[in-house]
Design a protein around this nucleic acid. Structure first.
Length: 635
RNA sequence: GCCGGUGUGGCUCAGGGGUAGAGCAAUUCACUCGUAAUGAAUAGGUCGGGGGUUCGAUUCCCCCCACCGGCUCCA
């Protein structure tokens, strides 16, 4: 007998060799039906995995990441099987489960067309109907290689050769299809209920652009048709929120053919942008930051000194002025360095927090450009904090608090990740350890949970990244805090300590919005263009019924504008329903219908974008209401 | 940059070897109207750019550009 500890802490005894599925059946028929895999001592296994020793067992359903992955991973095998049946010449690469589905990469000469996808889907349905069990088996390395060589699968052979010594080499068979795979899988193909192939795209073998481009098919699957439909609906929703579409429709910003990656901001977009920047300035002043502005073009020598030449040249633009070489800044830090260096600093002056809304240019690959999310010029809401080593922790904590305050205002949840030393970076291991530990300590002091991204840091130091989650569950990296021991060294920055000697300050680079442009894109999609009143480019739209109400409407506009509100009046000769429809589509928070009654009573008939007709109210009451909403940044 | 797709009036889209159409928007006129589209009329395009094939190209072919979906990269 063996003892199995379940998730709820209960311990049950079973005969040695019992399968996970049998354990599930012993608990309840419902659980046995829903179970897709099991986590045994922290490792996800197939349902027919035999338990031989005492262990902890967590049964995984589609609600668990492990169960979901197994389900979709099996769907990807079904797709591969279908592709091999229809296109035997296709070579198999890899086919994992990913966040919202799965993909499989194939090496095939003729790219897949949408019609091909339909055929593949039809074949997949057949395979599901045939309900093949997935059988796992292992082979010794040389036999495994021979097996895949005979099948004519060069990518699989390469994968096997790269597996570490001693690693078990497992395969899964489902009917006429066998794939090299670590698993786990769900028991049979018939378990897959609802799936859809979504798109085809090129993808390099092993993600390396020097390798051959393969054909990747993306798809997703769910245990219920309704869940699949809901997911597809959400994809449509996301498309409707696309900031590129909304930006154009709402006249906020646009990117024109004449400037790929270089966005234009329209008057309404500038209002939004300026409101964000005003808010940013106010909050930074509160926290004792000083604002600076450094030039966009600076001498090339500076970039040699900063290390950007060696580490970032590929992404930089260069120019010549009177025979001398200059660079367009891709980052603000070297400028900040020069500002610090202008004068000698005492330890009493530190920390010194220099903030800059700095316009940077970076050369991005043409294929990487994406609306305001990925551009070639953008404004970082940057700051460089110069401090003594003792001040690191407090300063990092201060920035963490600042970022937390900002994101809350917009209604974002977020999580943090810590990135460590990458390849091709500057400095010694000791410096990196010290910097990385300082960041960890700050996070621990806050009691924040974080994920570690090994090797994902900047070339000059480790960083904490803030990933915020928008209203439809997508995450975006925005804020970052980067600790830097390198730049102060390179620029020979000093401060005079209490001992009268020169010491080396430490520096933090940090952004909150990240890029103003991208943050605006995220906000646009987050709110689906319906910005909260404090951010809305037009806050109130006055809609007079007919000509004779124009005077009062214009008087109201003047009055509201004096209160600092952003107001438009629709004086066109249109019916009220039409004016309302347009204002509603423009996502204006408040519409004021002005007719005889309002004119007589000096009142306004309020219609809220969200709640519809609120009825008439005295004009002062409306002003109080909207000012309160703006003042408190109500979402 | 790479793979695939797309490019027709401000927007959304139809068409197709004989020199272009719809809806919305715009303009004008009529209507003076109470919470998501009043009606009529008018105007607007060298069909992304360049080259080629052809009697003739927006349509077929080639090159380029931009955009979209991915890969890579990243704020």
């Amino acid at each position: 007998m063996i003892k199995v500890t379940l998730k709820d802490g209960s311990v049950k005894e079973y005969n040695k060799g019992i399968t996970i599925k049998e354990v599930a059946e012993s608990i309840s028929a419902g659980l046995a039906r829903a179970a897709l895999a099991g986590e045994v001592d922290g490792v996800v296994r197939d349902l027919n995995y035999k338990l031989e020793n005492d262990c902890t067992l967590n049964l995984l359903t589609f609600e668990n990441e492990g169960g979901r992955d197994a389900y979709r991973h099996t769907t990807s095998h079904i797709m591969a099987q279908a592709v091999k049946r229809l296109y035997p010449e296709a070579k198999l690469a890899i086919g994992p489960a990913i966040e919202n589905g799965f993909y499989y990469d194939f090496d095939i000469d003729k790219p897949f067309s949408p019609e091909d996808l339909e055929k593949i889907e039809a074949e997949m349905s057949k395979i599901i109907k045939e309900d093949h069990p997935l059988e796992r088996f292992t082979l010794p390395r040389d036999e495994a290689i021979k097996f895949m060589e005979e099948k004519g699968e060069p990518y699989k052979v390469e994968l096997i050769r790269d597996l570490p010594e001693g690693e078990e080499i497992s395969f899964y068979r489902q009917g006429d299809f066998v794939d090299l795979c670590a698993g786990p899988h769900i028991p049979s193909t018939g378990k897959v209920k609802a799936f859809k192939l979504l798109s085809v795209a090129g993808a390099y073998w092993r993600g390396n652009e020097k390798n051959k481009m393969l054909q990747r098919i993306y798809g997703t699957s769910f245990p219920k048709k309704s869940e699949l439909d809901e997911y597809l609906f959400r994809l449509e929703e996301a498309k409707k929120r696309d900031h590129r579409k909304l930006g154009r429709e709402l006249d906020l910003f646009d990117i024109l053919e004449e400037g790929p990656g270089f966005p234009f901001f329209m008057p309404k977009g500038m209002i939004l942008r300026n409101v964000l920047e005003d808010f940013w300035r106010k909050e930074h002043r509160k926290r004792k930051y000083q604002e600076i502005k450094t030039p966009v073009i600076l001498n090339e020598d500076l970039w040699h000194r900063s290390g950007h030449w060696d580490h970032y040249k590929e992404n930089m633009y260069f120019t010549k002025i009177d025979e001398a070489n200059y660079a367009i800044k891709p980052m603000n830090c070297p400028g900040g360095m020069l500002v610090y260096k202008r004068r000698l600093h005492s330890y009493r002056d530190l920390p010194q927090r220099l903030a800059e809304l700095g316009l940077v240019h970076r050369h991005e690959l043409s294929g990487a450009l994406h609306g305001l999310m990925r551009v070639r010029c953008f404004t970082q809401d940057d700051a460089h904090i110069f401090m003594t080593p003792e001040q690191i922790k407090d300063e990092v904590l201060g920035v963490i608090d600042l970022i937390d305050d900002f994101y809350k205002v917009f209604g974002f949840k977020y999580h943090v990740e810590l990135s460590t030393r990458p390849e091709n970076s500057m400095g010694t291991d000791e410096q990196w350890d010290m910097a990385t530990n300082a960041l960890k300590e700050a996070l621990d002091a806050k009691g924040m949970e974080y994920k570690i991204n090994e090797g994902d840091g900047a070339f000059y130091g480790p960083k904490i990244d803030f990933h915020l989650e928008d209203s439809i569950g997508r995450t975006w990296q925005c804020g970052t805090i980067q600790l830097d021991f390198q730049m102060p060294e390179r620029f020979d920055l000093v401060y005079i300590g209490p001992d009268g000697e020169k010491h080396r300050p430490v520096m933090i680079h940090r952004v909150v919005f990240g890029s103003i442009e991208r943050f605006i894109a995220i906000l646009t999609e987050h709110y689906a263009g319906a910005f909260p009143t404090w951010l809305a480019p037009v806050q109130v739209k006055i809609l007079p019924l007919v000509d004779k109400h124009h005077d009062y409407a214009l008087e109201l506009q003047k009055l509201f504008e004096d209160k600092g509100l952003r107001v438009e009046v629709d004086l066109r000769n249109e019916k009220i329903g039409y004016k309302i429809r347009e204002a509603q589509l423009e996502k204006v928070p408040y519409m004021l219908v002005i007719g005889d009654k309002e004119t007589e009573n000096r009142a306004v008939a309020v219609r809220s974008r969200k709640e519809g007709d609120l009825g008439p109210m005295p004009m002062e009451q409306f002003i109080d209401r909207i000012l309160y909403e703006i003042e408190n940044k109500i979402i």
